[in-house]
Amino acid sequence: MWFEIIMYILLAIGVFFNLLAGAGLLRFPDVYTRLHAGTKCTTFGSIFICGSVILLGLKAWLFNGNDGGASLALHTGVALAAILLTNPTGAHAIARAAHRSGVKPAQAVIDELEKKPESKYEVKK
């Protein structure tokens, strides 16, 4: 009984943050702030949902003696690692592309990237 309650609480937290990501995408004013919502909230929500699935697999493996549970837990762990590695890097790529294609941050107090010096590694166009 206690196990199901823990699992449902983890699922609820994960779903709450994923819904918050959708709401943030609709509410925020420009690309950068939308990236904040769209990347961080989904990553955090995914950690909790994958965590509950891993717990489920470990329980099926350790307490019910089902080898499929170990398989479920390990594969979900690999998927979680993939999400954790790729999500921030993708966000970084989108932010850089947005700034280079000329989107200015809305309501910005300060923008120091405007004055960035030319790098010697930069590909000349």
Partner: peptide, 25 residues
């Protein structure tokens, strides 16, 4: 840079390859 992207209200936008300075939204 990845840690900064996932934590308190900050997002790495660009990096200066010469001296590893980070530009952060």
């Amino acid at each position: 840079a990845n840690s900064i992207t996932l934590t308190p209200g900050t997002l790495t936008v660009d990096v200066d390859e010469d001296c590893n300075d980070l530009y952060i939204h």
